[in-house]
Each structure stands twice: as structure tokens, then as C-alpha cells.
Amino acid sequence: MTVRNRGALAALAAGVAALTVATLVACGSQPAEDVGADEAANLATATPTPSASAAGGQSVPVTAGELPAGAEIVPPVRLVIPAIDVTATVNAVGINKRTNEFEVPPSVDEIGWYRYGPGLETTAGSIVIAGHVDSAQQGKGAFFRLRELDQGDTLTATGGDGKARKYRVVAREEYAKTKIPLDRYFARDGKPRLTLITCGGPFDAKARKYRDNIVVTAVPA
């Protein structure tokens, strides 16, 4: 065997070793797999509304054309998730006008309920609560351990009416922010459900952004 050949073999061996280590590291640093993705998708399937048809001879719904009044919406004010040690104040939040994004409360200890969507009283659609996973200035946020939640974990949301409502986790998913089906999570139809959102996945230290969103879906228990 020539010297040249030995060198080539060594290079090959080193290459294999490097790739093996890289593969092991990549496997080890994968986030916990998504659970319940199908269940979450099924919840979003719109409930069919009975349609009035002139030909079918069904009665046509008639309403008094009164100006719309403010609907009775029950905002969540407190969220407790024992499995990950969360007890957080919930603020009603909307849209950041500059970015058109969800206005997550600036304090990382507090979480935000999307006030344009359904409240706890809803019989349809997704109640959305989002919170910080962490912040550069304030450290760990209320939803730091959200990705540890698993199917069957319970949580309790207390409404502005003082009534506590229990929910059961059915799904935990991770999506790249560029791919997340937000329309589904901000839907106002489909089965009533509670959707918790935070950031996760690889962190881009230059842009100071996480690549992914962690989404936990829970249903009334």
C-alpha cells in the first residue's frame, strides 16, 4: 500500500467519522416530535351549517336588521398549567399596527389572548393565547416550557366571569414560522379549542429570532 493510498484512506475514515458525529448530534438536537397533529387538524374542520334553499322549500332565516351590538365575550384572565409550572395573567391583546403581527405582551411573565377571536364562552373556533418563550432582557418567559406539554396534560383558564374552565391537551406541534397554518389556529369555526403559541426551534442569534412556532392545542375537558 502506497503512502498516497494510506493518506486517502485516512481522509475517508475521518470523513466518515465527522459525518457520523454530525448525524448523532443532529438526531440528538431534534425537538420532541409533534403529537396529535391529525387531531388538531380535525378540530379545525368547519362544522357544516344548514343551508337555506329556495328550491328545497326550507324556511329562510329572517332577522331584524338592527345595528350589531357588542357580543358577550368572556376573556380569559388567568391560565394555570400545572405540568409546566405556569400560573400567568392573561391580557387581552390585538395586532401590532406596524408589523401586522400578534401583539404578545411585552412582559414575559404575562401572556396575551387574541381579543378579536373567540373568548372562553365560545361554542366554535380557536381561542388563542400566546406568550414569550424568553426575552433577551427579561430571561425565561411564561411559555418557556410549553414544548414539554404532552397529550393528556390539563390546564385551567379562568374567565373574566370568575369561572374556571378545564382543558385537556390533544396536540403539540412545531412549525417553521414561514409554514405555520395560522388561518387554522386563528379560525373562528370548527370545534371549540384553546390554542397556545410560543416560539421555538433553532435560534438565529444574529436576527434574534427563533425559526419555529410551538403550538399546543387543547379541548374542553
Partner: peptide, 19 residues
Amino acid sequence: HSAPGGVPSGDGGQAGTGV
């Protein structure tokens, strides 16, 4: 209704996963 453009909820990097 439309969904918000995104849900930015972290800039600390303490929870970063991946490589």
C-alpha cells in the same frame, strides 16, 4: 377575518434547539 402575520414570542435564544 385574517390571521395575524405571525406570532413573535421570543428573542432570548435560551430555548433554542437544533444545530
